[in-house]
Simulated scan of single mutants.
Amino acid sequence: MAKVKYYYDADTLSYRKIAVKKSDYYKKTIFVFLAILLNGFIGFIVFSQFIMSPNERALNRENENLQLNLELLSKRVEESSTILAQLQERDNNIYRVYFEANPIPEEQRKAGFGGVNRYKSLQGYDNSKLITDLTKNVDILSKQLVVQSKSLDEIVVLAKEKEKMLAAIPAILPVKLVDLTRMASGYKWRMHPILKIRKFHKGMDFTAPVGTPIYASGNGKVIRAERSATFGKVIYIDHGYGYKTIYAHMSKMKVRKGQKVKRGDLIGYVGNTGRSVSAHLHYEVHKNDRAVNPINFYYGDLTPEEFAAMQKAAEEEGQSYD
C-alpha cells in the first residue's frame, strides 16, 4: 500500500493530504527505468571483461600457443648458434691451420647489418621484444652460416690442392730397396772418382745392376730427357710446387720430354752412361732450384729401421760414383 503524505497548511492551521499528480508519477517511473538501464549497461561492460566469447577464447589460446612456440624457437636458435660457434673455432684453429690458410677474423664472422632500423615493422605489438630479438638472432645466424659455408668451400679447394701437392712431392725411392746392391754415396762432400778432387755431391748414388728399373718418385712432367757428357742418359721431372728431380746415368729412358708421369711409373733403367765409374743411379731432389738432401723424402717408402740404416750409410765417408 502506497504511503500517504501530508503537509501543514498555515492558513487553516491543519494538515492536508498531498495530492500526487500523474505527470510526476510518470516522470519518476521513467527516471527509475533509466537508472536501471544505466546500471545494467555498466554492469554488462564490467562483467564482459571477465567473460569471453568462444572466438575470443580461441584467439587467446592461439596467442598463448604462438608465444610458446616463439620461445621454443628462440631456444633452438641459441643452441644452433652455440654449435656454429664450435664449428667456427675448429675451422680457424684446425682446418685452416692444417691447410695453411689465414683464419677468418672475428669481426668478419660477426659483422652487424647497420643502416636503417630493419625491425621497425615488428614494433608496437604485445610480443614485439620477443619477435624482434628472435628475428635479429636468426639474421645473425644466417649471415654467419654464409661466411662459414664459404670458408668450408675454400677448405675443400685447399684440401684438393693439398692432395695434389702430396702426390707431387718426391716421396719414394727411385729404385726399389730389394733391387739395390747398396747405397753408395750420400748428400755431402765427397772425393770425385774421376776428377780426384773433393766436390759436393748434390744427390744420392744407388748401386744396382744395369737394367734395374727406375721409377718416378712423385707425380710430375718430364721437362728433359736427353744425353749429356756428365749425366749420360738423364731425365728431369718437374713436380710442381717448387720440386724437381734428376735421374742420371741411365742405360735406357722410357719417357720423353713433355710426358706426364705419376709416382711409381717406370721411367728408365739403371746404367753406367756419362761420367760414371760403375752401374748406378745418381738421384737428386731440388726445391726452388736448390739441391736438397734426398734422404728426407723417403717417408712414403721406408720403415723407421730401413730409414735409419740408409741414413747411416749415407753418412759414411767414401768417394761417389760420379
Rank of each mutant, 00 (worst) to 15 (best):
Ser278Gly: 07
Gly124Trp: 08
Gln88Tyr: 10
Thr230Asp: 07
Ala2Ile: 14
Ala10Met: 07
Ala313Ile: 12
Pro103Gln: 01
Thr132Cys: 09
Thr82Phe: 13
Ser81Leu: 10
Ile223Met: 05
Ser217Trp: 03
Asn39Gln: 13
Ile83Cys: 05
Val77Trp: 00
Arg76Gly: 10
Glu64Leu: 13
Gly264Leu: 08
Ala279Gly: 05
Ser276His: 01
Lys143Asn: 11
Ala85Tyr: 05
Ala58Ser: 14
Ala248Arg: 01
Lys160Ala: 11
Pro54His: 12
Ala225Thr: 09
Pro193Glu: 07
Asp133Ser: 08
Gly232Ser: 05
Glu305Tyr: 11
Phe47Asn: 09
Pro294Trp: 02
Gln319Lys: 12
Ala159Trp: 12
Lys143Met: 10
Ile51Cys: 13
Thr303Asp: 01
Lys22Ser: 07
Ser320Glu: 04
Met250His: 08
Ile42Glu: 06
Tyr187Glu: 08
Gly114Met: 10
Pro170Cys: 01
Ala229Pro: 05
Arg224Thr: 04
Leu38Gly: 10
Lys252Thr: 14
Glu315Thr: 09
Glu79Ile: 07
Tyr187Gln: 06
Lys21Phe: 05
Phe99His: 14
Pro170Ile: 00
Lys252Trp: 13
Met1Tyr: 05
Gly203Trp: 00
Ile36Val: 15
Thr135Trp: 06
Lys150Trp: 11
Leu266Gln: 10
Ser278Cys: 09
